[in-house]
Design a binder for these strands. Structure first.
Lengths: 166, 166
DNA sequence: CTCAGTGCAAACGGTTTGCATTCCA
DNA sequence: TGGAATGCAAACCGTTTGCACTGAG
């Protein structure tokens, strides 16, 4: 899930991006292409800062503002998805051909485990139906401890902050 | 679910707060009492700004910083729960005797519908087990349209931003 | 050519922090 | 009365915006 993208995948994404931009009569500029490439070159989950860093490191002179202006385009074009892994900052993830999924985040090491959300969607739609609500999307995050971290610390420590962070 | 609290409920909460503070050797001060009272006097869901407004309106001179320093105490003492109803701002909700629940938020009118989370917890624990993960808590938010808003607008409008906001 | 897009820097807004003063335990 | 808690204002930090310049179509 964190492997590098093939050239084909990149080409497909770029094509999709261009198609979307055309449909909206938005220009495909050099910075936008650089941002797209950089986003695809990052791990599946990343934030704006990492994107900026990668661009600078690649010698691209792209302003922070341009990144923030471009990320929504990548989301709307279906290439990225905005996810909220932390409370204070937006993270993004590649969509690609991946099945819809949600996340578990380890409170200790920050490890992210994805799981497919078929059952979550099912439950979501059922609950929405019961409440006369039309569900469009959901956000489901599980917080806890991964196997490694659960093993290496006392059980009582694992409850602390249980009220604090949800 | 949004009704005023009885004096008994307030007393119980205050007692719990004091007990918690004592256990942590933290002082029970006048500002902290005022913040507790104000928090309980607000609707079930509120944010720091509303809390500050209510305090000022009540003639209490409490600094914003004190509010931000006190809210975590109220969360840790089990009186409030931090919930993330919007992306940019923390909201809090009363815990009281309420059963654990999650939220549906209408994209159009902002209406919040709560639903008990027994089934969500069940699914969460099952998924965690399958992934060798020890779940401590979860966050589940459904985004969509309430019955009223779903009725009063064209269906195509309801998809827009479907990628954008999760 | 023309106007959307960009870079830059300043603004924004929720939250946090440094520090002198206040006040519980 | 000593150290925690407070008020105030400034700092923070992710994100947004205003504006003059640049470049895609």
């Amino acid at each position: 899930m964190a492997k590098a993208l093939s050239n084909e995948q990149i080409a497909v994404a770029e094509e999709a991006f261009i198609r979307y931009l055309r449909s909206q009569q938005i220009k495909y500029t050099k910075p936008r292409r650089a941002i797209l490439r950089a986003a695809l070159g990052l791990p599946v989950h990343f934030d704006a800062e990492q994107l900026l860093a990668l661009l600078h490191q690649a010698g691209e002179r792209v302003a922070k503002a341009t990144i923030y202006r471009t990320l929504p385009l990548l989301v709307d074009s279906g290439i990225l998805k905005q996810v909220r892994l932390s409370d204070n900052q937006a993270h993004y993830e590649h969509i690609l051909e991946d099945a819809p999924h949600d996340h578990m985040v380890c409170r200790r090491c920050g490890r992210i485990i994805e799981f497919e959300s078929r059952r979550v969607e099912q439950l979501r739609d059922q609950i929405a139906r019961e409440n006369d609500f039309r569900a469009v999307s959901h956000r489901f995050g599980i917080s806890g401890y991964c196997a490694t971290c659960a093993k290496s610390q006392p059980a009582d420590e694992m409850q602390q902050g249980g009220n604090r962070r949800v």
